[in-house]
Amino acid sequence: MAEVEIKAENRVYAKPRLMLDNTMHYCPGCSHGTVHKLIAEVIDELGLADRTIGISPVGCSVFAYNYIDIDWMEAAHGRALAVATAAKRLNPDRMVFTYQGDGDLSAIGTAESIHAAARGENVVAIYINNAIYGMTGGQMAPTTLLGMKTATTPYGRDPRLNGYPYKIAEMMAHLDGATYITRQSVHKPANVRKCKAAIKKAFQHAMDGQGFSLVEVVSTCNSGWKLSPVAANEWLEQHMLPYYPLGDIKDVKLDPTR
């Protein structure tokens, strides 16, 4: 039988148009790259390339601005949602999103994150939860699972010493201003597709003035976890997902009479 012809009409998947050619600095198999692609695809599909402002955090993804061809601002550690608040309020016609890790959004930036959600800012937070601090060398995050070994919990996270992990998505779901809260993953192709749909919904939600959205992406940090990329994806399914279950946590419409 004939070979598949390499031509445009046969192309069913390619690098998203808005992804730049810069080689990513992320470790092989890192979830960041996959999530970046989804954001690039969503922005393009919604026709928002000239209207989107991305806010990158402190952590491995500080350099998100090197990979997606939109305007970016780089926020101080944890402050991205305060930065986003003003960028959006002063430019209500713009799509404003933050891209933050678990250390950034749910440790040092807890106050800024919770209050942006509580105020119902029309922005989206993409929240990468890999239960560890990647860039600084694998220390404990607020989301580190009990028993999990990190550079600062070398004998495993012990609640008596290190306290308990917490789920900021569920916390935010209690806030009236937070209207779309979902938890996704990108460890399997089907999950990647669902995650993209969630990001798209969140972006539409923000542009429709429907309040604050959080898309948590349960992710791997295979270097920090000291596993191969494939083994990390398996570990995520076995250990992370039971504690951080996937799916929509909250999906409501704001009261139009507000």
Binding site: N10, Y13, A14, T23, M24, S31
Partner: peptide, 15 residues
Amino acid sequence: CGVICPDSCITVYRQ
């Protein structure tokens, strides 16, 4: 494969 590739290095064709 293309969808999950973190580094956007796979282009997929189908006929």
